[in-house]
Nucleic acid binder design. Structure first.
Lengths: 338, 338
DNA sequence: CTGTTAGCGCTTTCAC
DNA sequence: GTGAAAGCGCTAACAG
């Protein structure tokens, strides 16, 4: 186990002061080029590595961005993270990532950890059951930038990056109605979450526009799991009057529902036309391919990270920019029409 | 912007020494319960947050684990990460995650960053074109534990967590041969990587066992992308003697290949029986469902993190445990037999 | 059970 | 263009 090399060691070896070494290593303009070269090459030779903690402690800055997501293992989330990591990495930031597993309790704990880790900023997509935002006030109090994406909270108080979920919900539903479907069922998630509430809004708006009365029994709030998909399919087969359209706000759930419906002998899209959400890889692969809403996950991640970093570098004020809305898009495939 | 509260502020306010405050906050056994309560509640009241950097600087430990993966947006990787995050979080560790995007250059840069961030340990799955392991010697020199998973390197020198890829490759191939297929094509990745090299080994072994001569032209080294799937399908349709079996070491690629084959009028599994790899969500959804090898991603992540943490806590020596092999499993579905 | 003291490695102000 | 010196906030050895 080698001894750690510090700027003092380099300084001593070269008969410079630690201050000069520090400056040289940080490419400070006031240092002669020769000196810089000398010092950097000696640093390399001696196997020096900068101590981020000492530096952070001193500079009160971490070059680290915290990310809290509901869960890591979803195709949507991983696209978002891939986008974030790319942008952050290029800008010299590290990402600390944690998952709330859809529980506020864990979300709170994670938030605390992030806070203690003194992340320069925080990117959050909230859990299923997050009610208030008290656990984030520590950040706002300290002026640490906080940016919500996808599952956002408190429309006005925080900057958020979203798609137009109402519009997406409207388009999905209107698409089914345009095809002549009149009994469109809607499977969605916890309505506390903007994404689901807004999509429901869009659903209702489309119905209204086509003069179809809203029927509460056709809307189901679930956890959008694959199991739910199976269950919903079972329910549908048992219904006296079956829906002829189905709008599920999650592709995996939609797919498992569709598959189960097919197994019970129903035909997709003839008996039930289906629209999903997210444009998950499975949506292209299922048969018939699933009509869905493309959700620009990677872009969302990139823009979220970029906005935060710009803000940190004083190039932009995310507090001023209240909401960034990305374009989603209806992708029509076989599950809704032949 | 509030002023940062330190243990000194708490100490002054309560007429204790900073040391006592520190101990109380860290739940040191030698502190009276009353004092602890008093101090912790005062800390809460004053809005104290521990400064991880000062603490890390002092303790020479970070409670942070670095993770480097080829890419974030794959279903396999996100399962692994989900497992790691869970275990790490429960043990009080943070995860710094970065992606090499399959490039050694970026992998090296990431490794350096992790090193400077003084992660307590590093979990790595190497990039497509990583040749040597020089960029990790900094870690081994300093005695920082290094653990490879999935795409591992240098069988002996480093601890690694893998599945038995040769066995998996063997099972996939033998399954096809057992069904009477005699011309089994194998689409795989860069043979520098253990995962692909070993699967090829298994493939060859199965052929040998069934007395079928190995035909080089039936093996293709690709990047296993979805585009490759399409291209391979096109090639197959053009071949004078078509393969009757296809073993692709990646589900997404297998699925796109399968789908393209179907489009050109070939029947799966009748004309070509297909086996994939990973048990990606798409494999269950495609029609016919894809026979594949289940890869225990989540478990791999959990075990990798757990082993590293146990090692850090002195509960285990991962240098002694050279290789941990997890069970993979052939999952037979419609794409290989009716 | 609690306090004193020193120092982790770095940056930065002030001085020359 | 470079140096001296202080201090970021915390912990651990030692002392009592």
């Amino acid at each position: 186990m080698e001894k750690e090399v510090t700027i003092y060691d380099i300084a001593k070896r070269l008969n410079y002061s630690p201050a000069t070494v520090s400056r040289a290593l940080n490419d400070h303009p006031a240092i002669k080029l020769d000196t810089k070269d000398l010092i950097t090459s000696m640093a390399r030779e001696m196997g020096y590595r900068s101590n981020t903690f000492a530096s952070n402690l001193r500079r009160q800055r971490t070059n680290t961005i915290g990310v809290i997501v509901p869960r890591l293992n979803s195709s949507f989330v991983s696209s978002v993270l891939a986008g974030m990591e790319k942008v952050a990495n290029e800008a010299g930031y590290n990402l600390i990532i944690s998952q709330s597993l859809e529980s506020v309790t864990k979300e709170k704990a994670n938030t605390q950890t992030m806070f203690n880790s003194r992340v320069d900023g925080l990117l959050v997509s909230v859990a299923y059951d997050t009610e208030d935002i008290e656990h984030f006030t520590a950040f706002t109090n300290k002026g640490i930038p906080l940016l919500f994406f996808d599952r956002v909270i408190g429309n006005d108080q925080f900057t958020s990056i979203v798609i137009d979920n109402a519009k997406a919900g409207y388009e999905a539903t209107a698409h089914l109605l345009k095809l002549g479907r009149r009994r469109v069922m809607h499977i969605t998630g916890n309505l506390k979450r903007n994404v689901y509430a807004d999509r429901l809004k869009g659903y209702k708006q489309a119905l209204a526009e086509y003069g179809i009365p809203f029927d509460e029994r056709l809307v189901q709030v679930t956890d959008l799991s694959q199991e739910v998909g199976v269950e919903v399919a079972r329910q549908i087969t048992r219904m006296p009057i079956r829906p002829d359209g189905l709008f599920v706000t999650n592709d995996l759930c939609a797919v498992s529902c569709m598959t189960t419906l097919k197994q019970t002998g129903l035909s997709i899209p003839d008996d039930v036309a289906v629209v999903g959400f997210n444009n998950d890889p499975v949506s292209q692969v299922v048969n018939p391919a699933l009509t869905t809403i493309h959700y620009p996950g990677r872009e969302m991640g990139e823009i979220a990270a970029k906005s935060l970093i710009n803000h940190l570098n004083g190039l932009m004020d995310i507090q001023a920019t209240n909401t960034i809305i990305l374009r989603s898009e209806l992708i029509i495939r076989g599950s809704s029409q032949k």
